[in-house]
Nucleic acid binder design. Structure first.
Lengths: 343, 343
DNA sequence: ACTATTTCTGGGAGCGCTCCTAATTTTCCG
DNA sequence: CGGAAAATTAGGAGCGCTCCCAGAAATAGT
């Protein structure tokens, strides 16, 4: 470990502190001869500039925070979040930012964290995962503090906030329409929580597709889930008594639960009940599952979210931006489309 | 947002910078009258001390890094890691440390990250998730840098390193012995990767239990998995042709894959094939799965790991410590023990 | 009441960097 | 070759805090 300072390197290289600083920060006006000499000393001494000093002097920390509020941390059951986190972490690294992690577990955590997050000179910006009523407070706090922020997922009050989301309504509209086109008449859905924008929007898309295609809207075919496998399983059990011939689950994990419930009956997928999920998690394409699903660009989202935030940080906050990413319906076996083609 | 400094607060409260500093850091020698006056100003102005300045002056950042090396980030398929991360994040928060996240995706990431991690004055300590050959390099680097470090999971070269792990050998020994006691004769196992200490140790426990109970060790009943559901599924398919009457999977996720494979045959669980997993993920106790499994204290591990690291940070590195946590065999339905009791 | 202690408070020095300006060196061109 | 312009380098000031020591105030002791 080196307790070396710029000054030490400067001395060893026979130049001044400022010159070393310029070399370290890769600035232009340094002669090649000197630059090389300094770089050489830096290399051999394994010098790394002190982060705190740099942050203090430059008022930039090159750190961004990822805040997962209460409502979300519960969701850690869903592989969607780890995947997203992975994308975000990669993008941060790519841009030489450090990611720090604020997993809010309960009210108490929240109280301890917010002061930490809002300390001046600590974070250059924040990413907040959102979509639930409860998250409104975090978002409000960040706005008040004027910390650059990008929200992941549309929050309930989105007017003065920059967020990145997918077009949930259209995505589920397309998925359900696909089932309609395949001739399904009694299409059920297992929704996300109805206190989340995701849950609400995906249900809205379902409703739109059903009514637009003149199918009756049967409340018995709509069950609220919470993105867990279990809620998919139990939800499907409820639905099954109403003779569905298809089900659209608002997440792959719930679709897997639903399929487990279906498989416990004599019914067959997709012949008797077609299934479509949402997310396109890696496992959905694995082995014999072959789930038809809505692919959302999880890793890509992570990248966009980070790059948007960095833009805010480096160029100042201007108008709130709303970035909507495209999704894609991935047709595999569980919707029955391939079977029909073969027939 | 406040661009207030200690000095500003001092002025408003009619005291000196030093006194405000004492109040902020909750030090003792301040009269109650003054303390209250200062606290009041701090409250009303919503002042938060600048983190970088504090770090620079005190040489402590109150940040710890969580490094998930290459080999592990691939494993993000397994809910074990999100759960562990949750425990770690909570423990950090509890102790007023900030957690930053270094998810190494590839060699290139690694090269960008290490300088960042090793910058002096940036991290007070590091947590490294380990257990694979590839991680040796990260660990070596941290040792060289003399950064306080705790390794999560026994690394391959563990002599001069503090790590926290569970007793993998005994845990799987107990699980397999349980199957033996239940009268199973052809016990199979789906192992973790054989380039990981976890994989190796859990297999060792299996082997010990089999041979100690005088059952033949049949190589056809041992298949290597990689902790994914798919590897459990395919692994089980291979095993099924050799007529097993039980299977011990080195993770719950693989156990679920194995059960999926079994359920596709006429065989029944636990009557024809008993199943035991490892981890006790929440889903294992859900609904109709009721997986018998080895419970490891995931959240608890997170806490221990963080507290051990904080101890190293605050009291200096002494002898490397090896902390082994206990596990517990959770008997549910898939091992057949309950069925027998009822019979 | 008047020291001798103890408790509390103030301000200087310094953490290691960036940024700015001034000094120095190099380059260019008549 | 000389002087102006351009390129390069050096060093001061300051980022906002902690830590230390000296000084002031409060308390105790006789």
């Amino acid at each position: 470990m080196s307790n070396l300072t710029l000054e030490d390197i400067a001395e060893k290289a026979g130049v001044s502190r400022s010159t070393v600083s310029r070399v370290v920060n890769n600035q232009s006006n340094v002669s090649n001869k000197v630059r090389e000499r300094v770089l050489n000393v830096i290399q051999t001494t394994n010098f790394h500039p002190n982060a705190a000093a740099r942050t203090l002097a430059s008022q930039r920390s090159w750190m961004i925070g990822l805040v997962l509020p209460l409502s979300v941390s519960f969701f850690f059951t869903d592989p969607y979040y780890p995947n997203l986190t992975k994308g975000i972490a990669q993008a941060c690294n790519q841009n030489n930012y450090t990611l720090s992690f604020f997993l809010v577990g309960n009210k108490e955590d929240e109280d301890k964290m917010y002061p930490r997050i809002s300390r001046k000179g600590f974070l250059d910006g924040v990413l907040v995962q959102s979509g639930h009523h409860g998250d409104q407070q975090v978002i409000g706090t960040m706005i008040d503090l004027k910390i650059p922020m990008v929200v992941i997922g549309r929050p309930f009050r989105a007017d003065n906030v920059t967020y990145v989301d997918i077009d949930n309504i259209n995505s589920s509209f397309n998925a359900v329409s696909h089932l309609v086109r395949l001739g399904r008449k009694r299409i059920a859905t297992i929704t996300g929580p109805n206190n989340s924008t995701v849950g609400i929007d995906r249900l809205e898309g379902y409703r739109k597709a059903i009514t637009e295609r003149n199918l009756p809207y049967d409340e018995n075919l709509v069950v609220e889930g919470d993105f867990t496998e279990a809620s998919g399983y139990y939800g499907m059990q409820k639905i099954l008594s109403y003779k569905p011939d298809a089900v659209f689950a608002a997440s792959d994990v719930m679709a897997i639960g639903a399929m487990r419930a279906i498989n416990e009956t004599k019914l067959r997928i997709p012949d008797d009940v077609a299934v479509i999920g949402f997310d396109d998690l890696p496992m959905s394409s694995l082995s014999n599952i072959q789930l038809t699903t809505v692919r959302q660009p999880v890793v890509q989202s992570g990248i966009i979210v980070v790059e948007t935030l960095i833009d805010l940080i480096e160029n100042g906050i201007s108008q709130p931006r709303h970035i909507i990413m495209d999704t894609e319906l991935i047709i595999r076996d569980t919707c029955g489309a391939n079977r029909r083609k073969l027939a």
